[in-house]
Computed example of a mutant assay.
Amino acid sequence: MGLVSAILSLPLAPVRGVIWLGELIQDQVEQQRQDPATVRLELEEIDAAATAGRLSEEERKQAQRAVLHRRLRPPGGTTAPNRKE
Rank of each mutant, 00 (worst) to 15 (best):
M1S: 11
G2L: 15
G2N: 15
G2H: 14
V4D: 05
I7M: 11
L8N: 07
L8W: 09
L10H: 08
L10V: 07
L12E: 11
L12F: 15
A13G: 07
A13E: 07
P14A: 13
V15C: 09
V15P: 00
R16V: 06
G17M: 09
G17V: 06
V18M: 14
V18H: 15
I19S: 05
W20Q: 06
L21Q: 09
G22Q: 08
G22H: 07
E23C: 07
E23N: 11
I25Y: 13
Q26D: 07
D27P: 00
D27C: 07
Q28S: 08
E30N: 06
Q31C: 07
Q31G: 13
Q31R: 14
Q32I: 12
Q34T: 14
P36T: 14
P36Q: 14
A37S: 12
A37Q: 14
T38N: 08
V39K: 01
V39M: 02
R40M: 13
R40A: 15
E45S: 15
D47S: 12
D47R: 09
A48Q: 15
A48P: 02
A49L: 03
A50E: 00
T51F: 09
T51A: 15
G53R: 04
G53H: 03
R54Q: 06
R54M: 03
S56H: 10
S56Q: 11
E57K: 14
E57T: 12
E57F: 08
E58S: 13
E58I: 12
K61G: 00
A63P: 01
Q64I: 02
R65S: 02
A66C: 04
V67F: 00
V67D: 00
V67E: 00
V67P: 01
L68M: 07
L68C: 02
H69A: 12
R70Q: 04
R70M: 03
R70D: 00
L72G: 02
P74T: 14
P74L: 12
G76V: 13
G76K: 10
G77W: 02
T78C: 04
T78E: 06
T78S: 08
T79C: 02
A80G: 03
A80T: 06
P81D: 02
N82H: 08
R83F: 02
K84W: 09
E85H: 04
